Simulated scan of single mutants.
Amino acid sequence: MLVVPVFIELSLEDQAQELRAYFKSLGAEISEEKSPKGIEDDLHKIIGVCDACFKEVPEAEIESILNGIVSMLVLIPVERAENLILAFCEKLTKAPGYKLGIVSLRVGWLMFQSLDEHSPMRYHVYYHLVQVAKQVDQVQAVFKDVDHLKQQFAACPPSNEQMQKLLRLLHEVLLGCKQSELASKVMVELLGTYTAENASQAREDAQRCILAALADPNTFLLDPLLALKPVRFLEGELIHDLLSVFVAEKLPSYLHFYQHHKEFVHSLGLNHEQNMKKMRLLTFMQLAEGNSEMSFDTIQQELLLEESEVEAFIIDVLKTKLVRARMDQAARKVYVSSTMHRTFGRAQWQQLRDLLHSWKTNLQITQEGMKSVAAAQMDLLAQQ
């Protein structure tokens, strides 16, 4: 029976010797003797064989051993522990299977939390944590949102290049986990890290952002992408033209684009039928902005639907909650009460301003009315 090392008031050197003996008992190729080169060399050798415990060892025991290594790493000055921490993180990312992956995630998180908040190594540990989270589909355990991510590194912000690398990884992981809304926010944050001077370097990221937004069946507000510097750098290219169609054009414009650039659309990995479905929804939203009442015939004509498909389409639109409306099947009409705008420009800001001004005026009228009522009641009480 193997004896798990328990580090109670042991020096780092003695802890290292306990770990050496433990891993040797598991069959790892390591000596039980301390290294004459010091504790860093001891840890280097221990980390090199620490994956020996991934085989036929209870999970609780594995976690205890790996946490023991973490407790030693965080006590070594960071400038001497950098390579050791990186090597240990690499081992954690290679833990086989879901259960060991979860153990590695907990151990990695312990190390991230144990490092001083001013340590630049926290970034590297976190990057590896995201990789482990990807393998076990647990990204929500390490990533909440972009603001929370920035708070994690407030004391020691990563370089711009490091943050870009991390955001690319998070975008990939979030897409894989079907968290498209968060993935979009991460990508927008990534593109925001580029300036006018280096926007040309963001070409690949900008294309990836556009494709993710177009392919996501739940992303309909695409207008903000056009304002991003790296996306503006793509003006004049087909990918930018396609985005512009989805931002402001109707279904016939998409069909015209597709007829002339079929191979390009398919080369992007986009599904034409999904594009059609999305463009129909966007076209309906645009029609609803200027029409509080629409006939089934108009919808059928504008959206290129069969007569039998109109009612089912309207029901699908209402499920998205992009448009608030009522369908009158007997009259074959749709009555629109409100809709989300596809674009939010000067006209929409003016409309919002007018709405708020009207709301303010109504509040003032109500307030004056309440004052009059209160004054009348006071007069009545005085007379009594």
Rank of each mutant, 00 (worst) to 15 (best):
Y98P: 01
L84F: 11
Q259C: 07
R353Y: 13
A288W: 00
V188E: 15
L352R: 05
G38Q: 09
L26G: 07
Q301I: 02
K319P: 00
Y22R: 12
R332T: 03
T219S: 02
H260N: 15
E59K: 05
V231K: 08
L356N: 09
H341E: 05
I76E: 04
C209Q: 10
M294L: 15
L211V: 09
H272Q: 08
L190K: 11
V265F: 03
D316L: 08
E61Q: 12
V49H: 11
Q15F: 01
I65W: 10
E293A: 08
E368N: 11
D116W: 01
A60I: 01
R232G: 14
L12M: 13
E40N: 10
A199W: 05
E161V: 10
L100N: 04
C50Q: 06
F233K: 15
V139K: 11
H171E: 13
S64Y: 02
R80K: 15
H118K: 12
Y123W: 03
F88C: 08
K24G: 08
Q351C: 00
E237G: 07
I46A: 02
W349K: 04
L243W: 04
C53P: 01
F153L: 05
I299N: 03
S338T: 06
S184T: 15
Q140M: 04
C89A: 09
I239C: 12
I8L: 05
K262S: 11
P158S: 07
E9K: 13
Y98H: 09
Q348T: 00
D205M: 06
K360V: 14
A248L: 02
R326G: 02
D14C: 00
L282T: 02
V186R: 03
K185D: 09
T339P: 00
V231P: 02
E29V: 07
Y123I: 01
F7V: 04
T361Q: 13
A206P: 11
I85Q: 06
Q364L: 11
V188A: 15
L363M: 11
E273T: 03
L214H: 13
L282R: 10
Q274A: 14
V334P: 08
C156I: 00
K178H: 09
H357V: 08
H341R: 14
K360Y: 09
T361I: 08
M187W: 08
V49K: 13
L12Q: 13
F7E: 05
K371F: 07
P252C: 04
T361M: 08
C177K: 12
M294G: 03
Y22M: 10
K99R: 04
E79C: 05
L86Y: 03
F7D: 08
I47W: 09
H44R: 15
R326P: 00
Y127A: 11
N67D: 10
S184G: 10
F284R: 06
V186E: 07
D41R: 14
G97A: 00
Q138G: 02
D223T: 01
G236R: 08
D328R: 02
L100H: 03
D223K: 03
